[in-house]
Nucleic acid binder design. Sequence first.
DNA 1: GCCATTTACTTCGAGGCTCGAAGCACCTTG
DNA 2: CAAGGTGCTTCGAGCCTCGAAGTAAATGGC
Lengths: 141, 141
Amino acid sequence: MTDPLLESVVRANHELFMRTSDRVTRPLEELGLTLATAQALWAIDPDRPPPSMKVLAGRLYCNAPNLSFVVNQLVDRGLVERGTDPADRRARVAVLTGRGREIRKRAVDLLLRQSPFAECEPEELRHLAELLEQVLDRSAD
Amino acid sequence: MTDPLLESVVRANHELFMRTSDRVTRPLEELGLTLATAQALWAIDPDRPPPSMKVLAGRLYCNAPNLSFVVNQLVDRGLVERGTDPADRRARVAVLTGRGREIRKRAVDLLLRQSPFAECEPEELRHLAELLEQVLDRSAD
DNA sequence: GCCATTTACTTCGAGGCTCGAAGCACCTTG
DNA sequence: CAAGGTGCTTCGAGCCTCGAAGTAAATGGC
């Protein structure tokens, strides 16, 4: 009752993720980052309004205490500052510092270059992007 | 210098993995598994000769001590037994027990059903499988 | 055949990640 | 204004991961 095609796709998805993680762990250390902090940094787009803790936790599929822990690491490293949302004074937002923007740029660049997808032709990438985004949209909660 | 298409693909791949992990953690607990032990179990194909610790560690992108720890959990739960490779008596192999085969089947089934890819049309799956396997092969070490 | 080296694995200890429970501050509803 | 809900943090426990060190077996040089 298991679809071999589905199994192949899911396995490939997992393996591509793990392979990238494996390749990237060492170089990230030189930026003072772990995989968890790098992903959190990636999730803070400097060109958009700073996200609240709740929004960030949603993006990273983790819960509030975990996110608090990770953001603390970024704050300790001077990459992020906590702000207060004036519209809802309960909410804290994560704001990138100048150094945060710089390190984020380097971390994302590293993640992309080390990914097996980096060797794809533009045509393949276009195709993959379309298919994967479609799957993501369709499974949106 | 960052390719938006590449970024989109890498991000989608990561997100699909994390979303699956998130959905699957609770149900796996009912099988007595964590994500780490489930992945290890998945990596032991009952229809192939039992893999050595070294081979398993390679498949899971982890190092030897980590794998030892994870396999110990599977042994403690009665899902795996350690054997000795007669061709190289240094090497230990991971052999699924009867219960191991049963739980593995259920765990893999769960992983596939909960994956966002489960909602794909056969045509999409075929397409994705082809593209992703190609990326994997091309980046093989 | 013997000893040094290499390989496969395990144990141990430290540190990072993740989570539930509990508590605080603020918002919202009546 | 009171009661309940929401957003976040702290705390403690458990799991995951890794490097260092140690054991057993295979390999290579002599």
